[in-house]
Every structure is written in C-alpha cells, then in structure tokens.
Design a protein around this nucleic acid. Structure first.
Lengths: 136, 136
DNA sequence: TTTATAGCTTGTATTATGCAAGTTATGGTG
DNA sequence: CACCATAACTTGCATAATACAAGCTATAAA
C-alpha cells in the first residue's frame, strides 16, 4: 500500500505503525506471548517470511515500539523488547481478543480471560505490563 | 499476504477480517464517520483505489460486518451499513484512537474525546452505537 | 576441528496494489 | 425528449510487496 500522507486522522498514524498484519503479529508475539528472539518470531505458526520479519522488526524499532539489544547470555543472539509505546497497545490487543472470541468459535480464548478483560481490565493490563521490566 | 491458516489464535481471525489497512479505514469511515456510500468511501483523504475499495466492501459483506442495500431515496446508489459485528469493533477503534492521540502529536484527537474514552467509556460506545438503527 | 545455530541478506517468482480508462444504469437539466 | 452528469463499479496494465529458497557470517556446541 502506498504510504498514507499524514492528515491529522489518528488512524493514519496507527495504521502506519502497526496496521500491517505482520507487525501486529510480531507485537502479539512480544507483548502477549513474551517472545524475544528472531528465531522465536520466525517459528510462529503463521510462518512469516524471513525477509519480511527482518523488515518489520527494523520498522518497529525505527518507530520506537521495540528495542534490540545483544543477549548477555548468548553473543550470537539478540533480544527484542517492547517499549512503553508497544505496551500501550495492550488495550487494543485485548479488545481484538475479545472481539475474536465473540465471533470466532475456534479462537480458543479462555472464559476466565474474557471475564477479566470485562470486569477487571485494569488488573489484566497491569499483569501483562508487569511481565516486562526496565521498559523505556 | 498468504492467507493465514486458522490455528486457534484469536488474532488470526481478527486479522483475516479487518487486519488489512483498507478494511479498517472503511470500517472507520462507516462506524466513526458515518459514511454510507461507495462515493463517500472513495472520496476519503486516503484515496483508496476503486478496485481495492470494491474488493474490500465485498469481503466485509462476506464476513458479515456490513450489509449492502439499495438506497430507497436514490435508485442508482447503495447504502453500506454496519452490522453488530462491525459495531462490536468500536472498543478496538477507540483504543486505537487513544493510542494515536498519545504518540502522534498531529492526530488531532479532542481532549474531551480522550476524557470520555477513559472515564466514560461505556457512554461513548453507546453514543456511537446509537448513531445506527435497525442493525442486524 | 567440525558441525549446528542465530540472525540475517539476496534473488526470483508470484501476488497484490495503484492508476487510468471504460461500462451500465439512473438522475438531473434545458 | 435529448443530453450530460453521476454512482457504482469492472478491466487492463505497470509497479510494488510478499513468499520462497538459498546463501552468508559470526558464534556456540560437540
């Protein structure tokens, strides 16, 4: 898609940053599933092409959603970590999960998760956030 | 993008239905801006290509998000209306707006809107919903 | 020392998008 | 009534993005 000129509509910015399917799946992997490495993203069931994965990770970093740091445990590996800007997407992700749970029988969202999303939203968001430390 | 096989992750279904930029912009136009006709969608500032617009409207209808009916006032025009399944995306759209408002200075979201989204969520959602009648 | 692995890059075929033009049915104007 | 305009598309083609396969480099493990 041609790059949308930025015209003061909040959706244009959001779509430019995470409106692409693969970007959102990577963010899901990081924020919801706690994945950290290139190989972990690459191994996801959706089978993202490796060139596209590299491209989207670079863009997410460029756009300030994630940081890339060397893994102190393994010098040939990198750790991709969410920044505040990515964690602030948790509410969007939760709402997407709730919507899918309603309209897709096989999405497999646990009822307890839905209950928390509805009745205990803040707590659920905090719990997900608390899974990450030293976030910039 | 290759069609993702449906593997029991809520994101796969959501992304298949509205994970494409143009689909989401059309939904925004319908749900948030109250647009109804092909020409109105076509006239949006993002300049969607007419063949892509036709394709996405057909898919949104196929997936049960919108209905297409003849305009009783004008026989050469059609009205595209949101169904329950589209209105249930309001929370997702609101969260996207809030996120953009935080990270995009020029998104131009009124402060009052943000206040309502945070403090009076249910009322805001209801108000948007109430803009549509006879929804299936 | 050899082999395996992480994290990529490159090349190419396929698919999707963007753009321009054309089509059909209806509506509005003189 | 004749003519032009408009709504809602469809079609054809150039361009861009994606998918797939292979290769590459540095590090780690056997």
């Amino acid at each position: 898609m041609k790059k949308i000129e930025h015209v003061g509509c909040p959706f244009n910015y959001a779509l430019g940053v995470f409106g692409d399917k693969w970007s959102l799946l990577i963010l899901r992997d990081i924020v919801i599933y706690g994945k950290k490495t290139y190989t972990e993203f690459s191994d996801s069931r959706e089978c993202i092409a490796t060139n596209v994965l590299a491209d989207r990770l670079a863009k997410l970093e460029e756009n300030g959603l994630i940081t890339k740091m060397k893994d102190p445990q393994n010098r040939r590996s990198y750790l991709y970590q969410p920044r505040e800007k990515a964690l602030d997407l948790i509410p969007v992700l939760i709402e997407m999960i709730c919507w899918s749970a309603k309209y897709d029988e096989i999405s497999g969202v646990p009822k307890e998760y839905l209950r928390r999303a509805n009745e205990e939203r803040t707590g659920l968001i905090k719990e997900i956030r608390d899974g990450f430390t030293n976030v910039v």
